[in-house]
Design a protein around this nucleic acid. Sequence first.
DNA 1: CTGTTAGCGCGTTCAG
DNA 2: CTGAACGCGCTAACAG
Lengths: 331, 331
Amino acid sequence: MMILGTTIKDIAKLAGVSPATVSRVLSGQTDFYSEKTAKKVQQAVKKLGYRKNTNAVELVTQKSHVLAVIISTIQTNAADQIINGIQETAIKNNLDVIILYAGEKNADLQKKALKTVIERSVMGILLVAIDLNLQNEALLKSAKIPFLFLSIGFLENRFPFISSDDFKVGQEATQYLINKGHTKIGFAAANSESNIGQLRLAGYWKALSQHHIKPKLDWAYDGEYTYEDGIQAMNYYHQHTDLTAAVASSDLAAIGMLNQAKSLGIRIPEDFAVISIDGTFLCTIMRPQITSVTQVFREMGVKGVETLVKQTSKPFKSLYTPIKITERESS
Amino acid sequence: MMILGTTIKDIAKLAGVSPATVSRVLSGQTDFYSEKTAKKVQQAVKKLGYRKNTNAVELVTQKSHVLAVIISTIQTNAADQIINGIQETAIKNNLDVIILYAGEKNADLQKKALKTVIERSVMGILLVAIDLNLQNEALLKSAKIPFLFLSIGFLENRFPFISSDDFKVGQEATQYLINKGHTKIGFAAANSESNIGQLRLAGYWKALSQHHIKPKLDWAYDGEYTYEDGIQAMNYYHQHTDLTAAVASSDLAAIGMLNQAKSLGIRIPEDFAVISIDGTFLCTIMRPQITSVTQVFREMGVKGVETLVKQTSKPFKSLYTPIKITERESS
DNA sequence: CTGTTAGCGCGTTCAG
DNA sequence: CTGAACGCGCTAACAG
């Protein structure tokens, strides 16, 4: 239920001017009205408690200042960092930000979120860690609203994105462990069905092969970034392999590995080294602190908004943000 | 920039009917049109790729199906649970949810978020862990939009809210430690300037006094729910007190205490017991796992939406959600 | 069952 | 500098 408020007509009447004049004053069009009328209008506004009707404004102007962020369920604060970057940059550009949750692998929720923002004709859409199904891809494209994927990359530039180079992520993580003297290196919670997972695995294999290491098939343990997947991976490694180190596909997965290692009496990093992918605050509050391939999530958000704002008619160029190894205590 | 799409007029023309009929078909008003016309309309829609203009709809109907959630960046672990509850319940009630970040103690950001949702005349506003300043309180009230605070309570029913009973939170946490045999009990990162902090402290003192324990002034160590505050509290306790246990005002603060204890060679729980307030997943991934006063954040979200939906003209009744002690390894 | 008319609140011509 | 008139896209009221 919407409560009808005072309109520019009401305040026009009270101020003794026309609605058009009120509109000019309120939308801050300098030099199109006299000081005197401006004051009259502002007094009337204060008295009646006017509030703008954005629906009407956007309907007539055919423009929106709203930037929509569609996000999948947050498990770590990676998304928090991205959102902080988005928010800050949006403010600089005079944009309002609305965030919609699309759940996790829930096509219906995704669709609902997409429809919501499309039907409101937002000025742009940022998709954070969203894995769209085909139908929703079509929906997104048909809307003709500028959009950009964040923290998720695509092959062959299927969609514009800003993310880490996940091949390099896998490669550098593995290279780091090799440099530490390891030769039997796993990849835990690899998520091999996703683009990201495949790219990281490819990087992992590349690094191994560069050092003439032949990975066994079960060195890559599948999973989905979760704490539980980390636990299971460590369990499996312990029972079935002689690995001495592993890359974990997320901070949370790494924590699962650490905890399970402790349960099994495996010392980290003496018996087993772990490097995680993400580098959120979780890495620093764990003991041992977790070495990570650190992604610059905040920067993804910043760059994402900037790209959308500078948007011309030509398509976006996708962009890789830098990664770095942050050495801590788990390796 | 908004791209003009096809309107009901366009599809009306193609289908050979009037815009009103198109509107009826599209808004699913059953029994107000024939099968035949419905089909004609739907074909035209498919061909032209129509998408609804929600601004126009809301402008004319004076109604919105959008529920706005304003959220602060603090407590983001808990906020996830609240949002899940909100989202799920919103879907059941055919509501769209938009989330706005209001930063942390940032009056300008708060104001911006409030204005954004107010000027869009959302059907309701849920404020999650938001501490409004006076000016923004006035803004919120003046909007005449139903609202509700979540996870934050007020004295004297100044605003409607759904939260844990923070007096009880402080009292039961303390009582738990007393039951464990402790008599020298601190309260870390107490946040004594906030309503919540004061209520919890009051509960803490009550529990102590019920057992004839006279707390020293410096047993309550101030702070703001953060990891760093937890570290500092433990440091202080170690240097200046002979406490054997403490309540931590958040899971993150508790983690800070645990880590600092480890650095100082203090064993948890043998030398020092900790119970944290919140009970998010952080408690279970730490080693030792952290005993907590567990709040039902998800339920706050569910109840919040339900309350807003059932809203009549009379004011909300505020509501306490249950708490429980979840014993783990830190005590 | 369907078309016509009117108007939601606002910004924007176009005259004055 | 200001007002009158128009229309954004849509639904609701009222006829037919």
